[in-house]
Design a protein around this nucleic acid. Structure first.
Ligand code: FES
Ligand code: FES
Lengths: 161, 161
DNA sequence: GTATAGTTGACTGTTTTAGTCGGTTTAATA
DNA sequence: TATTAAACCGACTAAAACAGTCAACTATAC
C-alpha cells in the first residue's frame, strides 16, 4: 500500500474540477496553475482518471475536463484507486498466500486495516469535501491568489523591462 | 505514506518474538526460517527496532532478541513507525505548507485519514494479536511446518542423491 | 488556418525497496 | 583456549516506483 503525491494530486485535481464546475470544462493548465501541479504530470493522471470513467474530456479551444458523474457519486477511494491501483495493505492482494502458498501470521491484521482505510475513504464524496469550511477557505484563497499572481507578473514585467 | 513488506515483516517478526517468548532469546535465524524472511534483511530491521527500544539483544551462542516491554505495551503503530518512519498520509508532515507555504486543498482530508490509521494501529497490541484465532492457527501450522520442511529436506536429499 | 487543449509514448533523475555480502565483535561451551 | 553461534556494522546492488519532462499528434472552436 502506498499513498504518495500521486494519489494526493489526483484527489486535489478532482476537487478543483468539482469546485470550478458549472462554468464549462476546466483545462489542465488552470488546475496546474491553481494547485501547483506539473501540467505534464496532470496529463498522465487524467489519462488514468478518464480510463476509469471518472472524468470526460472536451478537446479543442475552450475545452478541458468535466466530472463524469455527480459530485456525491465520486468518492475519494475511487479516485485513489484510479491512479494508484488500490489501497490494499496486504502483501498477497487478499489471496492469503504470501507465506509460500499459505496465510502469513499477520494476514488478517492487514485485511482489517485495508477495510478500515477503504471504508473511511469511500464514505467521503467530492460533494462532502466541498462543504467543508477548510476546503472553502482554501478555494477562496486560491481564487485571490490567481489574481494576485497576475498582478505580480505585471509588476515583474515592469521590473525586468 | 507507505506500507510495504518492510512494515509487514517488522510486525510479523515482532509477533513471532512474542509467540516464542519465555524460552529464552529468539535468534533471527529462527525467525527467518519460520516466517520466510531474509536473515540479512531481518538484521537491518532489528537494528531499527533496537534503536527504538522495542527489543533488546543477547549476543553470543544461545543469544537472540527479546521484547523490551510487555506484550500489551507494544502496539502495531510503534513497530511500523520504528522501521518506516511514520504512517503519515499528508504531503507536508502536518505542517500545512505543501502549497508553497500554505495549506493545500486536501490537507485536512489527509490529516483525518492519518488519524484514522494511527488510531486503528495503535489500539492493537502484540498481546491482542496473540489472542486471535487466526494467529494461533497459523503459529500452530508454522510449528508443524518446521518439522514438515525438515522431512521434505530429507526426501529431497534422497531424490537428489 | 491558426491557436487551443487533449492524447500518446518515450525518456529521465531520484528515491525506496528488498535484499546481498563480507567482515567484526561478543560470549557460551567443549 | 579454540570453536562456534549469534548479534552487529557498512557498503553494495537490481529492480521498481515516483515525479516529472519532452516531443509529436489529433481534434475543434474561432
Ligand atoms: S498478507 Fe495475506 S498472506 Fe500475508
Ligand atoms: S498535505 Fe498538508 S498542506 Fe498539503
Amino acid at each position: 500500500m502506498r499513498l504518495t503525491t500521486k494519489g494526493r494530486y489526483a484527489v486535489t485535481a478532482m476537487l478543483d474540477l468539482a469546485i470550478h464546475a458549472g462554468k464549462g470544462p476546466v483545462s489542465l493548465a488552470d488546475i496546474s496553475e491553481r494547485q501547483g501541479i506539473s501540467l505534464s504530470y496532470l496529463e498522465q493522471l487524467f489519462a488514468k482518471l478518464r480510463r476509469n470513467e471518472l472524468v470526460r474530456s472536451v478537446r479543442g479551444p475552450g475545452g478541458g475536463y468535466q466530472l463524469n458523474r455527480e459530485q456525491q457519486d465520486i468518492d475519494v477511494a475511487q479516485v485513489i484507486d484510479a491512479v494508484n491501483e488500490s489501497v490494499d495493505a496486504t502483501g498477497c492482494g487478499h489471496t492469503g498466500n504470501c507465506q509460500d502458498g499459505n496465510v502469513c501470521l499477520t494476514h488478517h491484521l492487514w485485511c482489517d486495516l485495508s477495510s478500515q482505510i477503504h471504508a473511511f475513504l469511500s464514505q467521503i464524496s467530492l460533494a462532502d469535501l466541498m462543504e467543508r469550511n477548510d476546503v472553502r477557505s482554501v478555494a477562496e484563497r486560491q481564487g485571490r491568489g490567481h489574481i494576485a499572481s497576475f498582478e505580480d507578473s505585471l509588476i515583474s514585467a515592469k521590473v525586468t523591462a
